[in-house]
Design a binder for these strands. Structure first.
Lengths: 212, 212
DNA sequence: AGTTAAACTACACACAAAGGTAGAAATCAA
DNA sequence: TTGATTTCTACCTTTGTGTGTAGTTTAACT
């Protein structure tokens, strides 16, 4: 028996899903909650195999909720079912531990199919979400070669990410302190930043920085 | 007409795919290549809508190939079709610009379906790959609660990664400059670092920082 | 040999950061 | 209510950072 919990503040959607899922022989809806708070309190979560979760909830948001729920029951498959399709909602949910992300307009059959897919080790997503997720992996390609860091600059950027000071870096790469400054200036220029923290951040995003 | 190119060193697989795809009214296989080198040289790549790409190729690997091909034609939809399912192959391909990742055992119908899905803005993947990809987003859960950043600390860490100063941050989150300092101190303590750059670096590694 | 661009050194300065210390204010539990 | 804890404010000092400006060396190309 696949044990399912639903968290969704709209009563109509909640009962609609519950009845749809109950029509399956091997599915059982343990309980439907109107908010994350209620669900977190309940022992039912610990017994759930699948949790259907909305994002736009009153009180604790679905994203935060997903994080808490997955810490309570790490084995539960959390599937977001929501109308939000902005980056923050999508990636926030996934980071929080969701393994699927569906739009609220799913038909009962699709929902059942999605749950079965999740149980089989897959990750139900709409095609658009899937594309967004994959695109988020793509390397950023600098348009102009001028924006590409030299080897020395890359080395220094790595040292910056370790929190090294001008002096420490100059000692490590056998250069004057001002020599180090010279290179850091061009790193900043190429990455369009004005501080070490920002440079490290951008370096990670552009996958210039190694070893992580 | 959907213009397709195939890069695959196995002649049998190559022709099998080509004939399968040609059976579709609106598909046309422009050319089949035995290696990335050949494909890169060819003008055909620039005209392709879809590129099917193997990873285990002689010479330039499919991963490196995907990177080069997508730099030649950024609009082409690159779909990997391969037997490799290790992290390096999967994530390397996606980083290189692929928007789909299928196993070589796909049936002709599935392959056609995958291409149509890609054309519709989706990202064809096997369920297992999809799960892997989504899981890669999941936050690391620190073992000890003492090391977990609070919401406010996380917010501030994100602002640090944008290169904001104490003053800027204090204005943004309505706190005194020293209030901000107070939180940054505990961020440093929890992450065991002593500077913004290092904190940002560690934040990325621990996936505390939003990475999109 | 002369020109040029990149790499490096040097100096100066306003400002920001890191960390020490100390004491309100708010929150929570007994 | 009291004490304990957390959060926040305040002040201070040393050190580091970001940037402007300027001069020198080095290597490459004509």
């Amino acid at each position: 028996m696949v044990k399912i919990s639903i968290i969704e503040d709209n009563v109509f959607a909640r009962t609609a899903w519950a009845t749809a899922l109950s029509s399956e022989e091997d599915f059982v809806v343990l309980e439907s909650f109107g908010s994350c708070e209620e669900a977190i309190e309940s022992e039912v979560i610990k017994k759930s195999d699948v949790i259907l979760l909305d994002i736009g909830l009153p009180g604790i948001s679905g994203i935060k909720g997903a994080e808490i729920l997955s810490s309570i029951n790490n084995n539960a498959l959390i599937i977001m079912i929501t109308i939000q399709d902005d980056d923050k909602s999508i990636f926030g949910s996934l980071q929080a531990g969701a393994i699927g992300y569906l739009h609220k307009s799913v038909s009962p059959e699709e929902l059942i199919g999605a749950i079965r897919l999740a149980l089989k080790g897959g990750s139900p997503m709409t095609p658009q979400i899937a594309r967004k997720v994959l695109k988020s992996f793509h390397k950023f390609k600098p348009k102009y070669t001028e924006d590409k860091l030299t080897d020395k600059e890359t080395t220094i950027l790595n040292l910056l990410s370790e929190g090294k000071s001008y002096k420490k870096i100059s000692e490590e790469i056998f250069l004057s302190v001002d020599g180090v400054k010279y290179h850091i200036r061009s790193i900043y220029e190429k990455l369009h930043v004005h501080s070490r923290a920002e440079a490290v951040n951008k370096g990670q995003k552009l996958r210039i920085l190694t070893k992580w």
